[in-house]
Amino acid sequence: MPKPDSASKVLLRGRDITRRWGGLVALNKVSVELERGSLHAVIGTNGAGKSTLINILSGEFPPSEGQVELLGQDVTDWSQPKRARSGLGRSYQRNTIYPSFSVMENCRLAAQARKPAPWAWWQSAARCEVSTAAAHDAAVRVGLGNALDRTAGLLSHGQKRQLEIAMCLATGPEVLLLDEPLAGMGAEETERMLTLLEQLRPDHAILLVEHDMDAVFRAADRITVMVNGQVIASGSPDFIRNSPEVKTAYLGDH
């Protein structure tokens, strides 16, 4: 995988993030850096703490210890909406689309966060040019351009996953935290999603949590392997592939 050029810069940084649930340590001093133009994959078995990491980085709940920095600012105490407005977008492992809305409405509602104007109660939301343009753009980007008027709940599973990403893109984030975007996708849909990630890479910093190992090793610039809430290895795909710790702990001997 060709590495993008030098102008890369750290957009999101998690520093020694620890999260305890009572006696259980879900995350133990985990550090990650996401650079613009780079796709950073996090892999690990179920319960390794991958989703917890995304939840803490996006501000769903605070870390017990550690720091989160977004675009050079310490955002550890920021609420999730505030982080989102500052350029942090995330998608969910389970679909969180609005099933009764059309594809366009789903994207438009997400894009509305750019220009919320809640006091303009007399103005139809559909007339807001900023959000309709951004929504249209996001839907076309993920390949749902010909399904704009379809009811989201009636889409195929793969299309729902695409819509999930489109809603994330519609807000215009610089940092993308994607929680298993490929889960349950067919081969063709996976290819399309990987192409999309490829297109997004140059001007975004992307964190990808994914179980599809073929996809991860193809797409990622950097891979972090987690086991039981701890990082056991982090580096280029080649480094990870040849790391003995990873082999024994996670990939198995093959």
Binding site: T96, L109, P116, A117, P118, W119, A120, W121, W122, A125
Partner: peptide, 14 residues
């Protein structure tokens, strides 16, 4: 139909 109303609908669903 306004942005406020749509946001409320969004809150209702998720």
């Amino acid at each position: 139909r306004s942005r406020f109303g749509r946001a409320l609908a969004g809150i209702r669903v998720n």
